[in-house]
Design a protein around this nucleic acid. Structure first.
Lengths: 295, 295
DNA sequence: CGTAGCTCATATATTTTCGTATATCGATAA
DNA sequence: TTATCGATATACGAAAATATATGAGCTACG
């Protein structure tokens, strides 16, 4: 026991941990179940620890295995990032993974990505829509579009634009319920709001007491769902004005009394600057997002 | 070509990158040169990229290989951290890696570490003396003692003490050159100072204009070297007063006019809280450092 | 109750990988 | 020039890891 394990064993370990069974891990790894069994046995004896208790229904991880899970996930993400980076060796090709908030990813990015693919046909793009800021450091993505300034020092970043958020409602709703005249009126209206109150939201909405979770008629964190609900005439919701103004039959509400502004940032790990594909994506996204008209 | 490489290949890749030769990598990996050759070939064909140019003097990494080096190093550090964490499965045993500044590591830690070893004979300790703050996030160390407050959110941290830095000189020097009466006098003296001016140093030394790199008679970043030079009677230098006051024949200079204060922090990745060995080390170091007398 | 479907464990055969031995190439020095 | 040292490349037998086939145990469901 207690010898430095081969790194392949960590991959198997991660897969078993994720699937909860030897057979399931074997399927995704392209191995067979006895092989996975032997590799887990080998890892356990190398580390000198029991990692799983074998049950008839699968493998149940021990406390030690759960403690080691973050390491295994880091390994997985790092190898994936390595392969992505290597895949675009010298020309603009390979795969670049982009992360952005849902609204940006749905409203702004698609035409830009289409243009990228037209000019670089061998460039493959992955789009991950989430707001987790740590993505870049954990190498879950190569390029990120964010609404708050990234602070990590190992990132290259750039402020590319500003985003204005306003209140919107469908014509049919306003016909039915009337147009609010002041922010106070909003307490009598159906508000479509966020579900989880992130620190950012909390900070930004301080001046607007009616914009509290408890007051919302419908709560969801999905921006496209919010827009769809607004369009269905259910109530008043917030949305990025640049995108909302292009939606037919949507009317801005209390334009002069409610506006939130965010800076839009693009960021990338500095090590990727020498990667032609990532560089092109970073620059193209940066200039295209900066060139967006105000309304 | 272009298939997901086995993770063992990354380990080989990292070793070849570090050694610059197949044979050298083979030696440290406990493999043979033909095996390493095959594995590098396999990795190159899997990634579809040339990683090294074969010369008679060894393997010269291509630009792509250099770009991939950070990933490989992350993998290496992560696997090492995983093994360390696993090594203390359920009892207080295994290996814990501690990082601290040189002065702390030399002046304060040794008796504490000795006590730890006495109470936990199967606990192995590694001590890495450097000031790189990112160590913990990169999993290069498990527990860190730092002179500035760690800011990363995934760390558990604690302020354990304060450190006072004063000016010291050897008796023989003061006999020869006289005791300075004011900070102004210091310009006529031989000062032993730092070599590289870190942001922390720059911020702290603003009020002391004579404490500039250009004025130093001897420059070194090594704290033990600074102390040795002070003790040799070469000039006046700064040192942690708690440690300096225990050195014979060392005299404090301008005590009432020059004092720098730092907070001493202990920090650990939050995931390690459930690791018995790391927890013991963190707690023992924390209480022992907090219990140090002021002088 | 019994069967189907899932799991993990085990024994055997096969494929892959590794190590040994050897050849080759280039730089360096006598 | 030639010998030597250190490096990489190649060939082949040995060892290790893998896949196949099978058995046994538990759960779900008709």
């Amino acid at each position: 026991m207690s010898y430095e394990p081969g790194w392949d064993l960590y991959r198997t370990f991660e897969a078993v941990l994720r699937h909860g069974s030897l057979s399931g891990a074997a399927r995704t790894l392209g191995l067979t179940q006895p092989t996975v069994t032997r590799q887990i046995d080998a890892l356990e004896s190398a580390l000198g620890t029991e990692l799983f208790v074998r049950t008839c229904r699968g493998m149940s991880p021990t406390a030690v295995a759960l403690r080691l899970q973050p390491y295994a996930e880091t390994l997985l993400q790092t190898t994936a990032a390595l392969v992505r980076d290597a895949s675009s060796a010298n020309e603009v090709s390979g795969t670049v993974r982009i992360t952005a908030g849902e609204t940006v990813g749905i409203e702004y990015l698609p035409p830009i990505l289409a243009g990228l693919r037209r000019s670089h046909p061998s460039l493959h793009l992955e789009l991950s829509l989430s707001d987790a800021v740590e993505d870049l450091m954990q190498r879950k993505a190569d390029v990120a579009i964010r609404m708050i300034e990234p602070t990590q020092k190992t990132l290259v970043k750039e402020k590319v634009n500003t985003v204005e958020i306003g209140l919107y409602a469908h014509e049919s709703y306003l016909d039915r319920r009337g147009m609010p005249k002041s922010l106070k009126d909003l307490t009598k209206h159906d508000i479509i709001g966020f579900d989880t109150e992130t620190p950012v939201i909390r900070a930004v909405t301080v001046p607007y007491s009616w914009l509290r979770r408890a007051n919302f008629a419908v709560r969801t964190d999905s921006s496209p769902a919010q827009l769809a609900i607004i369009r269905s005439g259910l109530g008043i919701g917030y949305y990025q004005s640049r995108a909302a103004s292009q939606t037919p039959n949507l009317v801005r509400v209390l334009e002069d009394q409610f506006t939130l502004c965010f800076d839009m940032w693009i960021a990338m790990h500095e090590n990727l600057r020498t990667n032609p594909a990532c560089k092109i994506v970073y620059e193209t996204l940066g200039t295209a997002l900066a060139a967006m008209p105000d309304d």
